[in-house]
Simulated assay, not measured.
Amino acid sequence: MTFGFAPSAATSITGPTGSANRLARMLELDEWAAAGIPLLRNPREVVSGLHSRHRPAPGTAVVAVLDHEERLAASASFVPREAPVDGWEFRNALLAHLRRVIPHDLRRRTPIRTAVLLYCREGDERWTEEDGAWMWGLRDACTLHGLRCGAYITLTRGGWQVLGEGRGGRRPNSMSPPADLSETVIDAVSSPVRGGGVAVEALRRTAAR
């Protein structure tokens, strides 16, 4: 896997004021890496499970909530509306979908559930300004929903990558067929929502390893 920075094809920022505001609503890769994001014990399992459930195409975001044992509590996929890359817009979209699939934990003193974001996009695994805006949006949405901010994962033609950690793999990728869902989860219940998909899972781990 290669590391570095790449321009975002989705970035469309015009005007000095709009540019400054939007750039303030994104996180650089080093800021994200230093933010104390909890490590996933088995990122490949998380990525494969979300890929099987939601079958994301490029441009699709999948937000998932994990319990304290890293079991999937809820997830939702959606395609954000076409707009200039802005962490504020991404935050609002993530928060709206979190509210649809799982109650908030704002009454808890300490978050016990963690939200992670898988974003399927074009390009390679290098950080882009679009990724930085998603990171800002995820962090803010988690705060407003009483969740711990978890990993940000990209899914591209080359594979998947947990940004800020250096962990990744070649499969699944944005072109690979999803694995059979029965291989990764049991007792799954799913229901459609306009503009994306939702899956609420029984909090049990598959026995097959």
Rank of each mutant, 00 (worst) to 15 (best):
V62I: 08
I186Y: 15
S190V: 06
V65F: 11
H68P: 02
H51M: 11
R194W: 12
W134E: 02
T184E: 14
E201I: 00
W134K: 02
E82F: 07
H145N: 12
D67P: 04
R139M: 06
E201A: 08
R167I: 10
P192L: 15
W160Y: 06
R170S: 07
R109G: 11
T114D: 08
A57W: 12
A61D: 14
L117N: 03
P111E: 07
H51F: 07
L144M: 04
M26P: 01
R148F: 01
V63Y: 14
P43D: 00
V162E: 13
T154D: 12
S174Q: 10
V85M: 03
S75Y: 13
G159S: 13
A93Q: 13
G123Y: 04
A179G: 11
A207R: 12
A33W: 11
T2F: 05
A96N: 05
A10W: 12
L106Y: 06
R108K: 04
N92M: 09
C149H: 07
P103V: 12
G169D: 10
A83H: 10
V162C: 15
P7V: 13
R53N: 07
G87F: 06
G146K: 04
G166Y: 15
A20E: 02
A61T: 04
V198H: 06
S48F: 02
D180Q: 10
P80Y: 00
F78G: 00
L29P: 05
R167D: 10
V162F: 08
P7N: 02
G59A: 08
S48V: 01
G137R: 06
P16C: 11
D86L: 05
P56D: 05
G159M: 14
A35F: 06
R25F: 02
R194C: 08
I153Y: 04
E70Y: 15
L117C: 05
T184V: 01
A188P: 13
A76T: 07
G123D: 08
F3E: 13
E89P: 02
L203R: 11
T2H: 09
C142V: 01
C149V: 13
E82K: 12
W32A: 02
R167Q: 12
E165L: 14
G196I: 03
H145P: 10
I37G: 08
L144W: 00
G150C: 03
E69R: 11
L147E: 09
N92H: 05
V198R: 09
P192R: 11
R44E: 15
A93S: 13
G59V: 00
T17N: 04
G59N: 01
P178E: 06
D140C: 05
I186D: 15
D67C: 05
G168Y: 05
I186F: 15
S182W: 09
N21T: 15
W32I: 00
R71N: 12
E183N: 08
T114L: 05
T184K: 14
L118T: 00
R107M: 13
L144C: 06
R121V: 00
D124N: 12
L117E: 04
V63R: 04
P111D: 11
R108E: 09
E28Q: 10
V62W: 11
A20D: 03
T60N: 07
P177K: 14
L117W: 01
A10R: 13
